[in-house]
Design a protein around this nucleic acid. Sequence first.
DNA 1: ACTGGAATATGAGAATACTGCTGGTAGAAG
DNA 2: CTTCTACCAGCAGTATTCTCATATTCCAGT
Lengths: 226, 226
Amino acid sequence: MRILLVEDEPKVASFIKKGLEEQSYEVEQAYDGNFGLKMAMQNEYDLIILDIILPHMNGLEVCQAIRKKKSQVPILMLTALGSTDDKITGLDAGADDYLPKPFEFKELLARLRALTRRSGDNGGGEKLSIADLEMDMGSKTVTRGGKPINLTAREFALLHYLLRNRGRVVSRVDITENVWETSFDTGSNVIDVYINFLRKKIDKGFPGKLIHTLVGMGYVLKEDDA
Amino acid sequence: MRILLVEDEPKVASFIKKGLEEQSYEVEQAYDGNFGLKMAMQNEYDLIILDIILPHMNGLEVCQAIRKKKSQVPILMLTALGSTDDKITGLDAGADDYLPKPFEFKELLARLRALTRRSGDNGGGEKLSIADLEMDMGSKTVTRGGKPINLTAREFALLHYLLRNRGRVVSRVDITENVWETSFDTGSNVIDVYINFLRKKIDKGFPGKLIHTLVGMGYVLKEDDA
DNA sequence: ACTGGAATATGAGAATACTGCTGGTAGAAG
DNA sequence: CTTCTACCAGCAGTATTCTCATATTCCAGT
């Protein structure tokens, strides 16, 4: 879990950093707005903690700049200003939460957990399932109806993505970007082929298909409707 | 934007409801935990505002129950308790934000915007509806009166466009540009044909037509006037 | 009302796009 | 060297999209 901490007061910064590292978060720091924005643009973070009062470029501007880039990183705004109006400005600038100083460290942690829950930290022994299909992220194993299923890395990644979006239709573009991580359209049919692999391993021989095709739209992982 | 408000004090409830409706949010109410949970399960909301102190089942329990169902609706916890520990419990129970009473209404609005922005911009669980017709963008499914309706990609796109502009007349040119994405007039009648397809699927066999023709102008999706 | 021309609705089938699948290649892993 | 994985090419079957020809409806101007 990588966190970007943008805070100019060295004392506060190192306090937060230490505390977060104790919880085994990976923390990178920036000491002013400009630099913070640059780091946010160049790297991928799971969360950004942003002080409002910063040299060069204030937190609100940084926040807006990040959002303009369509980035969806959760942003936690941090500041000494406690009045309602400031909070509102912060939240409207695109922040996801707001924490007034002084705060208790455990509250920071709690809000952090709330913000990152969604982005799906798959570090720990997370388990995903649908119907009688189970995927264990920890041991990278998949079973259906108790039977273990052997998947290659790609197959696993694809199934993982489908599982994370179960019930939602995912287009080929979605899959390309999230599983193959190339935004370029190679004009190939790899995805079809892999869907076919998965079908053979997951659906074939089991009652109730899980992988469904929506022609012209994409694929869904869902239980057959009753 | 549909909001579920779970709050037992009538005064507070109606205060919030009124305020939200002024901002043209659609608000539904529940007066205790049990009922709130039931409503949350049976309907789709864009956001849930949950008081912690409730009769029958407190807000924390409701929150956990909702999360257990894998539902990702943003939840805003509301309470008189202001101490840090209570906030933490709330956030860890699966809430996305926490607002201590008394609060200023505009702060509630700001937090609301922050919470709904996220679910809105991932294009995901968006839902559109008119009368008893519902469209779920996530699973690309359409139902009328609860009955599932199968649409092809093109039909879905057309209905989506009509739904986004429900109540407004859209011309053939509008449709060509927005659904077919060609600004060129091919001189064909594809649109008529597809309107006809849609009619067969969503109007035929149901009481009350939704698709209306305005000769010389275009089409509208609207409920029959009483 | 009546009517003729324009606009829209509808049915059938051709044209097209999409998907499932097989077989094969290159390269990595063992 | 053999096996396994990732990927590509291409065909066949099928669902979808579109065209066209033919009703039907609409509406101004009698």
